[in-house]
Design a binder for these strands. Structure first.
Lengths: 352, 352
DNA sequence: GAAGTGTCATGGAACGTTCCAGAGCTGTTA
DNA sequence: TAACAGCTCTGGAACGTTCCATGACACTTC
């Protein structure tokens, strides 16, 4: 008995510094646990006076309802997982903010998992979110194998923000229309008078491919006899070097470059400045994402903007519809828009 | 008929899709729930044959242990909260990565909450982490009222990464030694030959104050007769404009600026370029944080680097020590180091 | 053959919460 | 005054899991 009571005491000791439970509040307030439960959930069945008293006591004890116990009995957690690839990324931040705001409207809370640009980790993180009992998952530009997506989508509603590498039944998606973004970029350059426009890409992901394809199509329809110049995605550094070399040679060199994203555009800008290429006089550059670096660079970067917060909003709302019982798949798109800044100008200025 | 029954079945499947419980597995395998519990946790007390049989059945049913129920009875969740102010921030990303790696070593999982630079939200997020039952919290540069920190620290171990605005008993912290960083920056500039060095700051937060104070002290000890020039933190844009104006006038203008962080440095760089100030010839600039923008800018930014991942590591390890029973407070510091890039040069070059 | 020692397996008691049926009131109506 | 209705409030039964005491054997040892 004494031996077993020792461990019992150890356990109990641990319990004494545990968070206060509904029982503690009930005891301190002199009411039943049921009354406390009703009071803190703002349900009726308890008088206003009692409610205030209970809330005051709860506040004083620092009581916080235990989500696990609640979800255990209710059978739902009120948790939504957000899986993102890179924490330090303003695109992900903004989409997440949108998801979060929409979630708050439906009394859902966010749990964030991040894959750190590592596929294994991404999957592990997704597993972990499911183990936490999220009721749905929003995946932000995170490339997870389709087979795995399918498996997850069978268990909980799943919404992907961004392009899907391939069609996966049973899940929703919201993406910006990369074709429109790419076309807007090229149109802008064409209107300025550019004819020799190159594309610089650093990835073979679905979004990148879409942009590249749209670029090619657009260029071919404008100048059918010329093969559109696409650099990358392999050996990005070499591709950048080559572009800069071309521009310095000034022989049939591109006068403008549409890049796959702002990060790559920033690298190109840096390489140009290092090589003494005058921007935007000698080369116009258009980015994609309208991220915070656009305004840090000089010249400031013209870029394609996606309605990021709105996309997050839409993603969560679709997820909510699924929770409500929708079974058919839904794939939404939003139109990106071009934000013109100083990195693009007319090629007429190039030989002045 | 067949169409409607399909959807009906699909729906029903989804509802009764409620994950199988340990009871279901026990029933299907013809053993007690206790046996299943032992088997899936790989504990002894069950024969190898039975275990294999149970695991096979569990696998077939797609059984996944319910984390909530487990943590409810075990009294621990294995969860650690990370509270950060801004998702799209590489400093936070790196610290979080460090925390995460260290957590994995101790079989702890991360739950990320983010305050989106809003104090109310920050507190709500912290509340929510506690409600989830995290066993400890790491707060990354998130300014939460000390009274609130104190309240939280009474309930769970709390580690702050970054400077504390004031001493709060019962919690740990890990911070970079801002004095050392500031001094390294100024020393570097002095060694290059600068004498008129200004400081540009945009915040009154504890880290910013520390850097500012160290800057003042260092400058006073070097040139006691001159009042150190500090611009900001109010009206940052005006402060930047004024600095640029001074440099263009070239009358007793600062030849170098040490900024509170990279973001502010980037703005200064942009303003200089816009105004035609040649960098680094006319003005040397040192940032703080060694963030990813340093290498995007031209000239590339000399900056003070903090061992971010290591700080995250240390933070979680301290938290783990607390969980193990340590009661005395611990405040660690790490030494930052200067990363020299192209934004700093000798003032001798300035009038060439 | 009794006692002791393992191993394997079991059912009941927690854990902190919500839900539910119902108890005790007070007031209203027939 | 009986019947009823409407509030408050309550204790017990879930929820899915782990922990614990104990039972049922099969061996060994005295």
């Amino acid at each position: 008995m004494s031996a077993s009571s020792t461990s019992g005491v150890a356990r109990r000791r641990r319990r004494s510094d545990r968070s206060p439970t509904i029982h503690d509040v009930a005891k301190a307030a002199g009411v039943s646990k049921s009354a406390v439960s009703l009071a803190i959930r703002n349900q009726k069945g308890v008088s206003e006076a009692t409610r205030e008293h209970i809330l005051a006591v709860a506040q004083e004890l620092g009581y916080r309802s235990n989500v696990w116990a609640r979800s255990l009995v209710q059978g739902r957690t009120g948790l939504v997982g957000v899986l993102l690839q890179d924490l330090g990324n303003s695109y992900h931040r903004d989409v997440t903010a949108g998801v979060e705001d929409a979630a708050a409207e439906h009394d859902l809370r966010l749990v964030i998992g991040h894959g750190r640009r590592d596929q294994k980790r991404l999957q592990a993180e997704l597993d972990s979110l499911l183990a936490l009992g999220v009721e749905g998952v929003v995946i932000i530009s995170a490339w997870v194998p389709p087979a795995y997506l399918d498996q997850v989508a069978r268990r909980v509603p799943l919404v992907v923000v961004g392009r899907l590498p391939q069609h996966v039944p049973g899940l929703d998606s919201v993406a910006n229309q990369d074709e429109i973004g790419a076309r807007a970029a090229v149109e802008h350059l064409v209107e300025l008078g550019h004819t020799r426009i190159a594309h610089l890409t650093g990835s073979t992901g679905p979004a990148a491919m879409q942009r590249r394809r749209a670029f090619r199509q657009m260029m071919r329809s404008l100048w059918p006899e010329v093969e559109p110049q696409v650099e990358g995605p392999d050996q990005l550094q070499a591709a950048i070097k080559y572009l800069v070399f071309q521009v310095r040679q000034e022989v049939a060199a591109p006068t403008a470059v549409f890049t796959q994203n702002d990060r790559i555009a920033a690298e190109l800008v840096g390489a140009c400045i290092d090589a003494g290429v005058r921007l935007p006089e000698q080369l116009s550059i258009v980015g994609y994402d309208n991220s915070s670096v656009c305004r840090m660079l000089r010249p400031q970067l013209t870029s394609v903007d996606q309605p990021r917060v709105k996309m997050g909003h839409m993603a969560l709302n679709m997820l909510f519809e699924r929770l409500g019982g929708r079974t058919e798949d839904k794939h939404l798109t939003v139109a990106p828009s071009l934000v013109v800044r100083g990195s693009t100008t007319s090629p007429a200025l190039q030989h002045t």
